[in-house]
Amino acid sequence: MSSIIELENLTKNFRKSPAVNDLSLSIPEGAVTAFLGPNGAGKTTTIKCLLNLQVPDSGQAKILGCDSRKLGPKQLQRIGYVSENQQLPSWMNVTQLLDYLRPMYPDWDREFEKKLLREFNIPLKTKLRSLSRGQRMKAALLSSLAYRPQVVVLDEPFSGLDPLVRDEFLHGLLELTEVEGWSVLISSHDIEEVQRLCDRVTILNRGHLELNESTDELLERFRKVTVNFPDSKNLPAGLPATWSDFQVSGRTIRFIDHRFHTTTLPEQIGKHFPDALTHEVQPLTLREIFVVFAKSFRLPNNPPSQS
């Protein structure tokens, strides 16, 4: 599978503080990739470097095989971009906005535009400045999709949307990505929503890459484990590095297994907890897995284990 986005040793500093630090990353074509990380992780800066909205200090960002610093009309006509801070011409209404944009995109699909207008249910004659935030975000998404871009980049598209509008936005986006087969990079703190969309998960922390793998593989290898004992139990030394987030409560020990396997886990429990009575295993949501990483980011000199 070819890569739609490639970052190689990408670095961007602000006042000598690194926002993106020697970041190398490849995102495959045709995938919906969740771009996650705590505040200040470097997600928005990475996206802006990728789209030539900011110039990296060193390294390289490529999208559609083109160096981001050389993006021209030919490439931009194949990229859709929606940001929570996107500025729309507030004096226009939706009809005027679409009339203004349409000539810029040779592949603009009028029938597709009409379909999106029906699905998003946006008032056509109301000035953009008078629309709700959710309606403006849907207008921005519509104007970025009607020309059928090859890759769509979304930076916090759900920010500030009420639950109903968020669900409508997400439903429309999910249907479109499945039907159109677009490559999508979506940065969001709404991880429950993102899980419904994404094929892959990328996690940044302080400008560094912490994880990049398929959603299915990630959800498969993380488990919450509860071990029960006949008496009160203290945590022994020498436990596997792939176990974390230990909680000791009387006769119970709970932890997260980063490399769960149905065969090896019972063997490991027998080795490290020979007096264990029973153990229970539960899957984690993407949000719960992200929290495991986020907790480890706060620990000095203790990056999250990927092994």
Rank of each mutant, 00 (worst) to 15 (best):
S2M: 11
S3V: 10
I4P: 02
E6N: 11
E8K: 14
N9D: 13
L10G: 09
T11G: 09
K12F: 10
R15V: 12
N21S: 15
D22S: 14
L23R: 05
E29A: 15
G37T: 02
G40N: 02
L53E: 13
Q60L: 15
K62V: 10
G65C: 13
D67P: 09
R69E: 15
K70L: 15
P73W: 09
L76I: 13
S83I: 04
E84Y: 03
W91F: 15
T95P: 00
L97P: 02
Y105Q: 08
P106K: 08
K114E: 15
R118N: 11
I122N: 01
S130H: 12
R136N: 02
K138R: 14
A140S: 14
L141F: 09
L142N: 03
S144E: 11
A146H: 05
P149N: 14
L154P: 05
F169M: 05
F169Q: 01
G172V: 06
L174Y: 06
E175W: 02
E180P: 04
V184D: 08
I191S: 07
V201K: 00
L204D: 09
L209K: 06
N212S: 15
S214A: 10
E217M: 09
F222Q: 02
K224D: 06
N228G: 00
P230L: 08
S232D: 15
S232K: 13
S232A: 13
D245I: 04
V248K: 07
G250I: 08
I256T: 12
H258A: 11
T262R: 10
Q268M: 04
D275M: 07
A276L: 03
E280P: 03
Q282I: 00
P283F: 03
F290E: 02
A294R: 07
L299D: 03
P303Q: 05
